[in-house]
Amino acid sequence: MKRTSILAATLAAGLTLSACGGDSDPLDDSGEESGSSSSDTITIGSASFPENVLLMEIYAAALSDAGVDVETRGNIGQRETYIAGLDDGSIDMIPEYTGALTLYLNADAEATDPDGVYAELQDALPENLTVLEPSAAEDKDSIVVTAETASEYDLTAIGDLEPVAGELVLGGPPEFEERFTGVPGLNEVYGLEFSAFRPLAAGSNLTAQSLANGQIDVANIFSTDPSISENDFVVLDDPDALFVAQNIVPLVTTDAVNDEITTTLNGVSAELDTAILTELLAQVVVGGEAPEDVAREFVDSIG
């Protein structure tokens, strides 16, 4: 066991190092550029997935309406990379998720409910970074069933599955079977014992497809996945907060933040919820629209 963890740590360190090496150059270059340009310009970054790019564009559209000079720098890779970008000043702000960011900064964080996670996040933030008000919108692990299954067994919360779980097949990414916020947690927190678990490749829509077609009855899907609205899936409530809250929140450097930015983005966050974000994301991912157009439309609609 000890050997295993040493090996894993060595490999993980190797991967992290190589990831930094590969991605650090573009960031260094941009750091010098933005350093030499006007310091009033706010550079907003995003991680490399569509939802984060969309959120970046929403922040950018709202801020430029408020008269702030904005630049965007999308698709900066993983958290390790863009946090380094915030530290060296090549970006000033990025859309983040409370739970994931808290665990990144403090691996011992324990809270799973939105308020508790947000409080732990504020404690864990280094001095040069701050977060604004969190939005109700969340992109987190959720347990999803089809509308038919939900009405057949009268399901609204995860716990409602308890009497029928033995007849149902659960599907999700392979790691869902092992990690606590997965099969073991569903068993411990909600007493669910599914008849089988079918591991399906993550990052594809196989899980959603399999749920829609009945190969699995219950699925682990992210709460903003466009397949949810496309197929009328029902997201089951998680009253005991097994899955860590992942409220969307702007992460800003303390150097860049000011009242204008705070008021504007708190306004945007207040208007966003998971359903709206899912819908906007579907326009990008399914409808093929440009994220900046979808963002512009949304910002105009909230005035």
């Binding site: 090996l7 894993a8 599907g171 990414p173 392979p174 079918r198 591991p199 490749a201 196989l206």
Partner: peptide, 23 residues
């Protein structure tokens, strides 16, 4: 085949990667 949830020796590759169990 393990990618789409079937059994076989591929399970160890896919599940091992997913749970970072490199052994």
């Amino acid at each position: 085949a393990a990618v789409v949830g079937l059994g076989g020796l591929g399970r160890f590759l896919i599940d091992g990667q997913a749970t970072r169990d490199y052994d």
